[in-house]
Design a protein around this nucleic acid. Sequence first.
RNA 1: GGACACCAACUUUG
DNA 2: CAAAGTTGGTGTCC
Lengths: 146, 146
Amino acid sequence: MPLKNVTIYTDGACSGNPGPGGWAALLMYGDKERVITGYEAHTTNNRMELAAVVESLRVLKEKCLVAVHTDSSYVANAFNENWIEGWVKRGWKTADKKPVKNQDLWEELLKQMDRHQVTFVKVKGHSTDEFNNRVDRLAVEAIKLR
Amino acid sequence: MPLKNVTIYTDGACSGNPGPGGWAALLMYGDKERVITGYEAHTTNNRMELAAVVESLRVLKEKCLVAVHTDSSYVANAFNENWIEGWVKRGWKTADKKPVKNQDLWEELLKQMDRHQVTFVKVKGHSTDEFNNRVDRLAVEAIKLR
RNA sequence: GGACACCAACUUUG
DNA sequence: CAAAGTTGGTGTCC
């Protein structure tokens, strides 16, 4: 039996950066849609972008074939440009030997990616992408609701 | 003999942005008032805000002590937040290294400010400020007259 | 030096 | 309701 094919759009927002932040993920499988969101009182834009991906993968109960769509090159390049390989090889140090930020989230993300077969798709922000615009609004909402 | 103390209110309008634009300036010296206005067929809101200031200073024949009132933080911050110092230092590049827009008008403004002693006062737009409301109406009129 | 986000502020409009 | 004209900053990496 083939893996379920899941499409995910994620986005993070952060009012002030750093400041109160929110994230949102839209999960699509067949004609089913599911939305999850989250909030944090003091965080950064990049942590929220990351958290959206981590939490969306954590939600999937069985192993899936996942296409994660994000407008964050911070997140997408980590895998598509293989940044993360270098980080792990150097013991979570950047190219200029400084500690990689948000290591906790990156490690949790790696754990989730072990459970699934994940591809990252970089999309342009604030553009004509309907789904990206939706999660963008949802992420901003997630802050305002508090 | 002390410098003449001139109070100036400026405003710009732009129908469409970009689009046809107008600007107006109200110059006050003692109990004398003078109004100048201008029109451009294709311009931006910020160019009109800038042009209003440039032209109002150009009108003054002798060196004056001038208080320019504008509702544009684009204009006011350039001097009150010292943006312009950074631009000149960086060779007319913005903080993220992109070319400063409207360099022609900024340079002409600097030239005029050399001739006078100018202070910028930021006022709130579309508010209770009688003089700001007047130049606002005059700037919009300057477009409609064409 | 490059890239992508996340914001902050003020206007100008539609 | 949404978008353009403009600037300043931080979060992160190569």
